[in-house]
Amino acid sequence: MTIGVEASASLDQGPPDDAAALLAMMLRIRMFEDKVMDLFSQNLVRGSTHLCQGQEAVTVGVCSVLRHVDTMTCTYRGHGAVIAKGAPLAACFGELLGRAGGLCRGKGGSMHFADFSVGAIGSNAIVGAHLPITVGAALASSYLGDDRVAVSFFGDGATNIGAFHEALNLASVWKLPAVFVIENNQYGEYSPLRSTTPIDRLARRADAYGMPGVLVDGNDVAAVRSVARSAVERARAGQGPTLIEADTYRQVGHSRSDPATYRPAGELDRWLERDPILLLERSMLTRWSTEELDTIRQTAQRDVDSALEMALAMPEPTLDEMAKDVWA
């Protein structure tokens, strides 16, 4: 049994700009998602959207140990993961707004952010469907003998779908360089985990696939990064895949239409006290002044605001776009 809560790694051990970079990225994602809520209320975003406020430390921590050539797949709650992997904010906003300058020229929308140039090879709107695809990305690395690692983010709910089982089994039997990261935000859509899942720690599922399962505090970015680094190194060394369960919390409803009234009283408040951005800022105060942290915050806000401005100025796609990209 390899399961165990990873102790928080100190950011003090890293270079001084590390913590600042992590904080800046988490703030950009938080502010991006807050803006998306605004855009929704203005009816500027179509369909539905699924936001990740509160879960930023998971994607930022993991992606901070990846290179652009490493691949990342994620879910329809994937804005944060794609931004953390390095996609430009303006093109992300452009995609949400259905503009020609969007990541996918407005053809994917909120649930399908992808930027292959930074290794973000797909956000999937079918629960768990990207796990087998991650296995394929890892298979390509193994086949070609390069050192790319394939990482996948998915929710606690995805561990109950068949594709999860098939993917983890195959990745392990072929010892592929993959890292599977459960963003355990405590709810599968509207249902609390305990009502759908007979075990309380999802990392235990790794045992069934003969791979290490590691539980980590998903609101502690340093701990997430430390666990991710070990898993990525293990994958790169040809030792096979790892399952990481990052315990975190979805501070908002499942989707646009969900006010999350099913949450027990006080639960949100308890998690807000452990907000990942708050925790990181608090830990940084030993080496950073409040003013310096404010500057990081202001810079992030300015980046997000100007990205949105750029996106709003992007034209809508021309109609010839409709028939493009069905075929090679």
Partner: peptide, 20 residues
């Protein structure tokens, strides 16, 4: 492969995305 059709097709897709 194991008897895992989703994994077979998914692995084909993912490997194609990465150059195979």
């Amino acid at each position: 492969t194991p008897i895992s059709e989703q994994a077979i097709v998914g692995a084909a897709i993912g490997s194609a995305l990465c150059g195979l």
